[in-house]
C-alpha cells in the first residue's frame, strides 16, 4: 500500500513538473500572433487600444463626484505616479482583507476619494482609466508583490486554473500549460499570460478586461462563468500574474 502511495506521489510530481512552464519558456501571446497583428500592436498610431489610453488620460484630469477632485488632484502626473503599478497588481486591500485588481482599485478610489458613483466593470470609462494607468507600466517586467497575505488567494487561483470545469471537463492547464502552441480549431493556443490587459481584441472589436477574456474560456468549456468582479477572478489573476512573472507589460495589447 505504501509502495502504491509513493508511486502515486511520484506520478503526481512528474505530471506537475511537466505541467508548469519553465521561466525560460514563458512566451507572451504576442509571439503567437501573425506579423500583421503584431505590427498593429507595436505601432501606437495603429493600435486601436491607444484610443482608450487617450480617453483615460483625459479622464485622469477631469473632476468627478462630490469631492470635486480628479485623479490628478492627488496622484499628479500618472507618467510618474503610476509607473510600474499595474505590473504589481492585484495587491492586498487593507479594507476588505483580500486581493483587489487594478480596475476595482480605481473604482474604489473614485467612490472613496472623489465621492463619485461606482462605474460598472466593463464600462468604457473604467476600461479607459485602467488602460491609461496600466500603460504607464508598458515594457516593464511583471513583478507581483512579495506579500505573504496574498498566498492563500493565489493558491486558490491556482486550484481553479488546474480544475476540470464545465460539461467538457477541461481545465485552463489542459490547454495553456500542457498544449500551448497546438491549434484549437483554427487558432493557436497561447500560454495564457495576462500581459496586456485591458486589451483590444479583434474578435470583440473593442477593449476588454481579463475577466471578460476568462469568461469566454469558461463559456467555451460549458461552465457557468463567474460574475464580473467575483473574488475567484481576482484570485485567478493573482496566480496568472505570478505565472507570468518577468514578462513585459504590453497594455494596451492587441489580440486576435
Amino acid at each position: 500500500m505504501l509502495r502504491l502511495a509513493l508511486l502515486g506521489a511520484l506520478v503526481v510530481a512528474a505530471v506537475g513538473a511537466v505541467a508548469d512552464i519553465a521561466p525560460k519558456d514563458r512566451r507572451s501571446g504576442f509571439e503567437f500572433m501573425s506579423p500583421q497583428t503584431q505590427a498593429m500592436q507595436s505601432d501606437e498610431t495603429s493600435n486601436p487600444g491607444m484610443l482608450w489610453v487617450a480617453d483615460g488620460e483625459r479622464l485622469w484630469g477631469e473632476s468627478r463626484g462630490s469631492a470635486g477632485k480628479s485623479c490628478a488632484s492627488c496622484h499628479d502626473d500618472a507618467v510618474d505616479s503610476m509607473r510600474g503599478v499595474a505590473a504589481r497588481y492585484p495587491a492586498f486591500d487593507e479594507e476588505t482583507k483580500r486581493p483587489i485588481d487594478l480596475m476595482s482599485r480605481i473604482d474604489q478610489c473614485r467612490a472613496k476619494r472623489q465621492g463619485a458613483p461606482s462605474l460598472t466593470q466593463q464600462s468604457d470609462e473604467l476600461l479607459a482609466l485602467t488602460a491609461y494607468v496600466a500603460y504607464q507600466s508598458r515594457n516593464m517586467p511583471i513583478a507581483p508583490p512579495d506579500d505573504p497575505r496574498l498566498q492563500p488567494f493565489r493558491d486558490n487561483g491556482r486550484d481553479w486554473f488546474n480544475r476540470r470545469l464545465g460539461q467538457l471537463q477541461l481545465s485552463c492547464a489542459s490547454c495553456h500549460d500542457e498544449r500551448w502552441g497546438a491549434r484549437l480549431g483554427g487558432s493557436v493556443i497561447p500560454q495564457g499570460h495576462p500581459t496586456g490587459y485591458p486589451l483590444y481584441r479583434l474578435e470583440w472589436q473593442t477593449v476588454g478586461s481579463l475577466q471578460r477574456r476568462l469568461r469566454g474560456c469558461l463559456v467555451g468549456v460549458r461552465a457557468q462563468p463567474f460574475d464580473f468582479g467575483a473574488p475567484e477572478f481576482v484570485d485567478i489573476e493573482l496566480f496568472l500574474m505570478e505565472r507570468a512573472r518577468g514578462l513585459p507589460m504590453e497594455t494596451p495589447a492587441v489580440r486576435p
Binding site: R163, L165, Q167, L218, V219, R222, A223, Q224
Partner: peptide, 9 residues
Amino acid sequence: NTRVADAWR
C-alpha cells in the same frame, strides 16, 4: 467545483 453551465446541466 465543476460549475456546469445551466444550459448543459
